[in-house]
Amino acid sequence: MRSIWKGAISFGLVTIPVKLYSATEQKDVAFHQVHREDGGRIRYKRVCTIDGEEVPYSDIAKGYELATGEMVVLTDEDFEDLPLSTSRRIDVLQFTPVEQIDPIYFAKSYYLEPDAQGAKSYVLLRNALETSGQVAVVKVALRQRESLATLRVRDGVFVLETMLWPDEIRTPDFEFLEEDIEVRPQELKMAESLITTMEADFDPSEYRDSYREALQSVIEAKVAGKEVVTPPVEEEAGPAVDLMAALRASVEAAKREREGAAPAKRPKKAASDKSKEKEEEKPAAKRKARKSA
């Protein structure tokens, strides 16, 4: 991995120099827009919509469009006096239980690696944070944008997770929330039973991106000059008419799937069966003697 930012964690009077790495990467198959006939790449030019002339990158500025359609042009000088921190610090603001932070706020995850001279203070803060069971709420400026973020520990490494601001979270204003929808107790009980039946420990390695794998196979077949065969598409079931029946069928299907995946268990033997086995294990002479007596 290559670091994309260098700075320091500011924790009280303690400064911990760190390097920032992107913790995730997209595995999507990348495409280019090309000419269908010869495969040539399609290029775009920066053209002014007013005079139709191509504009060099050095003459391009940022513009903010007003509601009236007028454009406010901003230059580099307009951004110089803005209160964006350039100190390259990750300022610890407070510590809080992680369950108090709704996951909807999280935007992007980064790893933090300590510089050689900051390794001890890094490990000290890491161990203290793990012991507390909390996360650090911090403020950081990345890519010309100031963000709130959290600092937590994963596999012995600090993970910086940038967060959205509260006014960036949309309100779910949906009509059905205002409706009085009645759910019968039997339906609720059956839905809870389905959840219980499908409970399992989460193992991300059990899941894969089947669409990306199929797309990669299509590309490889094109390269090899093979005929591309489209797999049959299964028809999806429509919405359930009888909710209770659908829930009951889902529970039974989940149970069958769980029983098929789990190794078969030997049935427990009853106490009478165990006594019979012990009786059969005794020598024949003793059984005869007991019978004659």
Rank of each mutant, 00 (worst) to 15 (best):
P231L: 09
P239Q: 03
L243G: 07
R266I: 09
R266K: 12
A245Y: 08
A262V: 12
A237S: 12
P239I: 11
K265D: 01
S250Q: 07
G225P: 06
V229S: 00
D242Q: 10
V241E: 05
E220Y: 07
A254N: 05
S217L: 08
S275R: 12
V223F: 11
A237R: 13
E235F: 00
S275P: 00
P267L: 04
V228F: 03
Y211A: 14
V228N: 05
A249W: 05
E236L: 09
V223G: 04
S250G: 15
E220F: 07
R258Y: 01
A237C: 01
K268M: 09
S217P: 02
G225F: 04
A237E: 13
P232K: 05
K265E: 10
G225A: 09
E220W: 03
R256W: 03
E257K: 15
A246G: 15
A264E: 09
V233I: 09
V229C: 00
V223T: 09
K222C: 09
A246P: 06
R256C: 05
E213A: 10
P267Q: 13
M244Y: 10
T230D: 02
R256S: 14
A224V: 05
P232R: 04
E213K: 08
E257N: 11
G260N: 14
K274G: 00
R266A: 13
A245P: 01
E235A: 11
R258P: 00
L243M: 11
P231Q: 04
P231Y: 10
V218A: 06
I219H: 02
G238Y: 01
S250T: 10
L215E: 07
Y211S: 06
P263D: 04
P263F: 04
D242L: 14
R248M: 08
E259M: 10
K269N: 03
G238E: 13
L215I: 15
A245W: 02
S272W: 04
G225I: 14
K265I: 04
T230N: 03
E234M: 08
P263W: 04
V229Y: 00
R212I: 13
G260I: 09
E235Y: 00
I219A: 09
A261L: 12
A240S: 13
V229F: 00
A240W: 06
A253H: 05
E227I: 10
R266S: 09
V229A: 02
D242K: 14
G238A: 10
G260T: 10
E220H: 13
E235W: 00
A271F: 07
A214D: 12
S210Q: 12
R212K: 11
R266V: 08
A237M: 08
P263T: 08
E235G: 13
L215P: 05
A214K: 03
K255V: 15
A270P: 11
K265F: 01
E236C: 00
A214Y: 09
E213S: 11
A261H: 08
L215R: 02
K255N: 06
E236G: 15
S272I: 13
V229I: 12
P267E: 13
E252Q: 12
